[in-house]
Design a protein around this nucleic acid. Structure first.
Lengths: 101, 101
DNA sequence: GAGGATGTTCGACGATTGTCGAACAAGGGT
DNA sequence: ACCCTTGTTCGACAATCGTCGAACATCCTC
């Protein structure tokens, strides 16, 4: 079963925004924005693993993440360079906790 | 009945993104980004006026627009300065038709 | 005041979404 | 071989969402 990771340019903007427009997924993206790879199981945001798997699928199919399988684990990472190139400023605007100014 | 235009900083990021994550609303925002005020009726995007009214309400309550009543018409404008200050890069990232590079 | 234009609100509807537990699949360790 | 760990998939469910027509409210102009 292929990971189904689309070309980011082929994903409608609304789909990218919709993927970001969820609290759990935004927490995942924030964690991923720290850099590097994260195992799926490291995301503990008060949802079941079925729900977590669902959210990761949404992010992947929106072109926001890439997933690599290794053993029983799966490692997820943010497609930050592509996102910054296609939507400059989007991630920064969305990821900052709260602009104080 | 007050227009119900919240302080943008009080609106959850996910609500802002959700407001943007719809095709009709994105078209409205693109039109508004041209600048100035637009009467509600000028948005002709293939939906009924009930639906259009609904979308404008979503945008307004997400803190994206301001509405001014004048006669039987209502004039809408984008809260661009506030958006750019709180979410720098968001609008630009989302509004550009398609980054060619 | 009657009539028309511009919007909003009110159900109603079908579709999508977020959530879960349970079942399933695949690897690793003992 | 067995079991445990890690994730995915499969219904199912309640909630939300986008859409519409119809009714309503407001204002403007005869």
């Amino acid at each position: 079963m292929e990971p189904h990771e689309p070309d980011l340019a082929a994903v409608p903007v609304t789909a990218v925004l919709a993927a970001l427009a969820d609290d759990v997924r935004l927490q995942i993206v924030r964690a991923l924005a720290e850099g590097g790879e994260h195992a799926c199981g490291t995301f503990e945001f008060g949802v079941s693993k079925a729900t977590r798997s669902h959210h990761l699928k949404v992010l992947r199919e929106a072109g926001l993440t890439r997933t690599r399988a290794a053993g029983t684990s799966r490692y997820v990472r943010l497609r930050r360079d592509e996102l910054d190139r296609l939507y400059p400023g989007l991630l920064d605007a969305v990821l900052t906790p709260r602009p104080p100014a």
